[in-house]
Design a protein around this nucleic acid. Sequence first.
DNA 1: GTCATTTTGTGACCAAGATCACAGAGACAT
DNA 2: ATGTCTCTGTGATCTTGGTCACAAAATGAC
Lengths: 229, 229
Amino acid sequence: MTKFKELLQDSFSLAGLTEEHAHGLSELAQPMSLKSRSVLFKAGDPGNGCYAIIEGSLKVSVVSLDGTEQLLAVLGSGSLVGEIALLDGSERSATVTALKPCQLAFISKAAFYRYADENPAVYRHMLQIMAKRLRRSNDALAARSFLPLNGRVAQTLLQLAETFGKNVDNNKILVHYKISQAEIANMAGGARENVSRVLNVWKREGVISRLSGYYCLEKPEVLRAAAEL
Amino acid sequence: MTKFKELLQDSFSLAGLTEEHAHGLSELAQPMSLKSRSVLFKAGDPGNGCYAIIEGSLKVSVVSLDGTEQLLAVLGSGSLVGEIALLDGSERSATVTALKPCQLAFISKAAFYRYADENPAVYRHMLQIMAKRLRRSNDALAARSFLPLNGRVAQTLLQLAETFGKNVDNNKILVHYKISQAEIANMAGGARENVSRVLNVWKREGVISRLSGYYCLEKPEVLRAAAEL
DNA sequence: GTCATTTTGTGACCAAGATCACAGAGACAT
DNA sequence: ATGTCTCTGTGATCTTGGTCACAAAATGAC
């Protein structure tokens, strides 16, 4: 078996599928890679398949007329992107851009349905993923209307921790991913300057710290409290 | 066949399933009804199934600690509610309350999966619904960060028009659903007073009007322009 | 009808956060 | 090391929209 297929299988397993289905799907997928900063697709493009992230990370965002962007998610290996258009047959709903060099696996619409029809577990799994996404999206929306900026920043940090966090010590979480304030601001929906202020208050209070460029959540419970609806 | 099952079948057909599957599912569903203003379930409750709306309407909302609520959607007959918890096996993600007396059909988790495993078309259909929901949720989030209040109100009106609108004349849309400013404000994410101001500006400009309690979108294109990201 | 309750309209004020304007720090290429 | 970027911190405004406070309408109950 090729290296690619092994990785792909791992990726699907990670995402919660059985060994067997991960293998089956990996047979149907097209390997491809993407340079950092390049765009996988833009909102409005036609969409005829989805991608599994084998390695690397990318961002899902919506860009407004004046060029400001709202990040919907930052995804790492083991995640799926581009499912929405695959599933409802409409155009791509957001823009996806590589943040780091990526190894992807493209699964065409036809291949997906062909395989899933034979293996309903794949459908169940996909539905589960969609449910999680919807849950998160609704949470973000609720946060936008209930939480002040610091709460939204807390939420964003916790979300990043979910995807990129490594537990260290007693419930301290190291976010193993280089991220700028500007990006956090785009996710939290606030101005970069104000995010900076919020972050500094927490840094002074020892709630978070920066270790060689990575954020470390020293007291996640404080953040969780701030993000409470 | 009972009246209930007929209605249910219609409901599922409306939602895009074939006659045959609508019939199959209707066999598995439990009829139930709900008085106006009563709560179907609350965020945090355990969830073991979903509901199809045969008749009536209800709202999906998230309530904050201090009691203010954010409406995620207002759903009418032919829609499905409560799928998220059904699909990811977690607790209910939002609170659902009847706005008008409702006829519902409860589909248990077990019944759903039993039937869907035999009929993959049901899975495909469900995925399509989820994709649409996710799309809308993401749009709302983007609107929250890009659009000023009037844009969000415009978006809300157009969304209501999608669910409850009847086309009349040349592209005028009558929203056949009684809704208060307070509810519009909760959907758009703004204070009721300011929504009132926005609405009045449009009323004066002839963009919208009220016909015996119902809003009528006289110039939907103006609203669409205002809601443009 | 008449009274009560819920919606709606509008002004005056206030506050959270956006925007502007820089200065200092790091990163990294040559 | 030196210069060029891109990131970060912080103060000083400015603006949107939230909050408060009512009055006027509309709706419903009896």
